[in-house]
Design a protein around this nucleic acid. Sequence first.
DNA 1: CACCTGACATAAT
DNA 2: AATTATGCCAGGT
Length: 111
Amino acid sequence: MKSPDGHVTSYQLAVYDAVRMIPRGKVASYATVAAMAGRGTGRTVGTALAKYPFGPETPCHRVVKADGSVGGYGGEPGGPEASRKEKLLRAEGVKFQDSGKIDPACFLLPE
DNA sequence: CACCTGACATAAT
DNA sequence: AATTATGCCAGGT
């Protein structure tokens, strides 16, 4: 469980690198991560994250949807793990609106 | 090489 | 405001 799967494309690594640079207490939309990676779109980023086994250094929980929803987690969209994801974000200092959406001020500005 | 799927985004209805 | 349809791009079959 230390090293991830061996078959990883260049794009996956680029997405990881972008996700890893997200500061604690902030979040970035899938599209923003794609912009930082330099390639792809929100869809490709989400697909990339879902397929990858993930190491402990990749804060995939800091990646959320553009409308403020937490998106997915644990390789499943809107799954039960997504609730845990929200809890993690709260623990890191991310504020949530009463509507259940993330505060726009916690979003990392795209490049 | 062609078709299908998918942790998204945006516009239109 | 909520739901539906279309566009995007990379990966897998």
